[in-house]
Design a protein around this nucleic acid. Structure first.
Lengths: 136, 136
DNA sequence: CCAGTGTGCTTGCTCTAGTTAGCAAAATGC
DNA sequence: GCATTTTGCTAACTAGAGCAAGCACACTGG
């Protein structure tokens, strides 16, 4: 999954610079806007430094993009966290529910399986229909 | 809007410890599982250190929770990362599952709500309106 | 021609995330 | 009773994120 973090960083940096320039902001202007020093912004955009999630969050606000999209580019979020609309949905929904403890999940899935009478394996579906990389 | 990182950290740490213990893992076992040193895990759980998104991602995998939920707790993601994946999803998934009888659906939802302690009214949503037009 | 201001970038520095080595206390076994 | 292991934790350290200060180059315009 994360093969070469530096390459991904370059990608992220390019994207950030692109966004900044499309907003017609200088490094100092963006720096002032998001509260991150301008030399550091420069290094991020050139892929020399790896920004933390906090910095990315600030940048997302300043550049008016979703934080998630930056996280995905930074490699700290999966592309599409939840696929659904299938028979596996109950299982995946239970598995992904943050309000449940693991034991509760196990119990629920147990009950569910006793209901449907099946022991289907959880299949990780891949629905990657959503890359905003419209640069071609 | 005025976030207090330390308070959130305590919350995150408590949650992580809870998850780890519910999996019946020791610090060293989890350490070995997710590739993070056990002293550091200890410090994270007690709210002494603030884990990066990478660490949180590893922990999410090891503890089988969604990375998003950890990010939200860590304060680096807004509360609704995915529109309809959270609490309503288990309900809608159950309601939409063709393999269940109505009585089984009621029973499952009953159990689920007793778990999460929610008293939300069961809204007769048909199919999960999944027009997830991500803004951008 | 040289002051002023804008751009991005380099250089040191601080601070902290995350590590390895090692500790005291509790459990298990002889 | 005492070894051994396993528990969580403390201490000392390294690497790198993120900062303030300052540089070189381009523009104005006087």
């Amino acid at each position: 999954m994360n093969r070469n973090p530096l390459a991904d960083l370059g990608n992220l940096g390019d994207y950030l610079r692109e966004q900044r320039e499309s907003h017609k902001l200088s490094l100092r202007q963006l720096s002032d806007l998001v509260g991150v020093s301008n030399p550091y912004l420069s290094q991020i955009e050139r892929g020399l430094k790896k920004p933390s999630a906090e910095i990315l969050q600030q940048l997302a606000k300043g550049l008016q993009v979703s934080a998630e999209s930056l996280y995905v580019r930074a490699g700290i979020l999966e592309d599409r966290p939840v696929p659904d609309t299938e028979a596996t949905t109950v299982r995946t929904a239970i598995a992904a529910d943050p309000d449940l403890t693991q034991r509760q999940r196990d119990a629920l899935i147990d009950i569910y399986e006793s209901f449907v009478g099946a022991a289907k394996p959880v299949r990780p579906k891949r629905t990657a229909t959503r890359t905003t990389t419209t640069k071609e």
